[in-house]
Computed example of a mutant assay.
Amino acid sequence: MHDSVWKFVCLRDLQVPAPCQVAFKWIKLYGSLADGSHSYKIRNNEKHIDWMRIGAFFFDSPVAILSEKLSLPLTILNKDNVEKALESSGACVLSNIKRGIWIADLQLVRCPVCELDTCEGTMQTLEVRNIELFLCDEYQKGSWDYELIGSYTINKSVDAASGGIFDLKHIKDRAMAGVFNLKSWAGKPSDMQPKAMITFHSVAIRTNLQENQGLITKYYAMRAGFEGEVVSIRISQQLA
């Protein structure tokens, strides 16, 4: 089939707009999505437990908001300088994002802070990546890796582990209200299964927790080389 057909199939299945340009043929992009590949299958597979494909969204601007809170107050969203207000509230603002289609997965991996085979600790990770990442030679060679860009610790019991990644340009869109309306998608407190919400320009997850001693959230970014564009983002969370 002509590559334009694969482009149509890919955009139809992902339900996202077409990017201005891509560096690979659409048949290869579609193949990288349909073959069951995920980042822990390519690297660190020994730590991996399970995963779930959430879907696809679109970065229309080069600035992303990373937050462990899914209840951003209207006083922040209504301010003229949203970026500055978000930083003051504890969210992480990340620039130089590669625009285009991004794929979102929820990963469950073994506790990363020890090497004990008997450790039953788990870590929840919201992971998003540009659709082209798995086809890039430098990624396949292992030259690109994740860098810790921020962390946040809560030293008291929390009801849930949540995380969201948003395109700053669209933070005031009407669709975002659905993400912040947890009652519409996050599940009842007794439901411990992970839940996810995705829009054209954002993705969020939430997992209800039993009584605990706190939560550690870490933000990671992968760049396409030194000072290159951000091509993947992770929000990882584990019990304190």
Rank of each mutant, 00 (worst) to 15 (best):
M1P: 06
M1F: 12
D3T: 01
S4K: 12
S4T: 13
V9M: 13
V9L: 14
C10M: 11
D13P: 04
V16Q: 02
P19R: 00
C20W: 08
Q21D: 10
W26H: 07
L29A: 05
Y30T: 08
G31V: 02
S32H: 02
S32Q: 03
A34F: 06
G36E: 09
Y40T: 10
I42Y: 12
R43W: 13
N45R: 12
E46Q: 15
K47L: 13
I49A: 12
I49F: 07
W51V: 10
P62W: 04
L66R: 01
L66G: 03
S67P: 00
E68R: 08
E68K: 08
K69D: 13
L70G: 10
L72A: 09
L74A: 12
T75A: 12
L77D: 09
D80H: 12
E83T: 11
L86T: 02
E87Y: 08
G90H: 04
C92I: 14
I97D: 03
R99E: 15
I103L: 15
D105L: 06
C119F: 11
C119T: 07
C119D: 12
M123G: 06
N130I: 01
E132R: 00
E132A: 06
F134S: 13
E138S: 13
K141I: 07
K141G: 05
G142Y: 01
E147V: 13
L148W: 04
L148H: 08
L148S: 13
I149S: 15
G150H: 02
G150F: 05
I154R: 07
N155E: 13
K156P: 01
A160E: 05
G163C: 03
G163H: 00
G164C: 10
I165P: 00
I165R: 00
K172N: 15
D173V: 00
R174G: 15
G178F: 02
G178L: 04
N181W: 08
L182C: 09
G187L: 06
S190D: 12
S190C: 10
M192G: 10
M192C: 14
A204P: 00
R206Q: 15
T207D: 07
N208I: 03
L209R: 02
Q210K: 13
E211Y: 05
L215V: 01
Y219T: 01
Y219V: 03
M222C: 10
M222E: 07
F226T: 15
G228C: 00
V230W: 01
V231A: 07
V231G: 01
V231Y: 03
I235N: 01
S236G: 10
A240Q: 09
